[in-house]
Design a protein around this nucleic acid. Sequence first.
DNA 1: ACTTGACTTAGAGTTGACTCCAGCCTGTAT
DNA 2: ATACAGGCTGGAGTCAACTCTAAGTCAAGT
Lengths: 138, 138
Amino acid sequence: MTIKEVCERYHITPDTLRYYERVGAIPAVGRTEKGIRNYAEQDVGWVENAICMRNAGVPVEMVAEYVRLCRQGDETFSARRDLLRQVRGELQKQIEKCQKELERLEYKIERYEAAVETGKLIWNKSASCGADAPEQES
Amino acid sequence: MTIKEVCERYHITPDTLRYYERVGAIPAVGRTEKGIRNYAEQDVGWVENAICMRNAGVPVEMVAEYVRLCRQGDETFSARRDLLRQVRGELQKQIEKCQKELERLEYKIERYEAAVETGKLIWNKSASCGADAPEQES
DNA sequence: ACTTGACTTAGAGTTGACTCCAGCCTGTAT
DNA sequence: ATACAGGCTGGAGTCAACTCTAAGTCAAGT
């Protein structure tokens, strides 16, 4: 598989893919005789892994650390487990934050929908949404 | 309320707070006679708003745009609603992504927990977790 | 009187993650 | 045979979001 095909499959640019390889977020990809990257299924798997982790906000350096551990063999099982547990913890925290903000947003959007109708913005002070209306007119 | 107190309350640095003010992610904060920032409840509300939005991954520039709209008055209700709807859409997409990755992670962690016990890493190829094991030993 | 500590500003520097560029090679189409 | 598409490398550039620095003001403590 060429770099272009992989890029199309995952909607990323060749530059990004080469960058991931350079910094170790994926291991070195196989080449043709003339030095052109030729992605085997395994390579594509690594690409997918990197993209998944990045999508979840894992820093590139941490993806690289995980790859490093994987390539070191069986002695690193527990280290990998620990790394993934840490990622999981951060991901859970992030999801929670996002969900809180989503609730806050839903509430605000509702108010604005009413405001667009009535021309008046009304904030229910006792609403259970963390921040209440900082945007009362100054 | 001093800048320090606000910082302690939200676990951010004074630099960040001043930066938010500079770029308009919060409106100009009230000052004492000698020019020192004195955060009123309203100001703190704006700070909270900025932090919530940033936590949800909203770019600073977009927070500033929202603040700008709020300060422009009642004609911007629908614009604000649209902006928040857009933020909501992106937030929902992000939560979905994160949840997918969380599932993938749970699966991997389970495998690693088993691997730490048994010394062997076994991937269930038909698992429903998107990417299957890119890290079979090379 | 003077040091310490908390604040101010304008502006420069850093970090992470790309993203682009120049200069090169190579296989195919006109 | 020559242009063009697509790949390669090393290194520079960009962007967002801070983060730090220098130089200054001011109040309280010794």
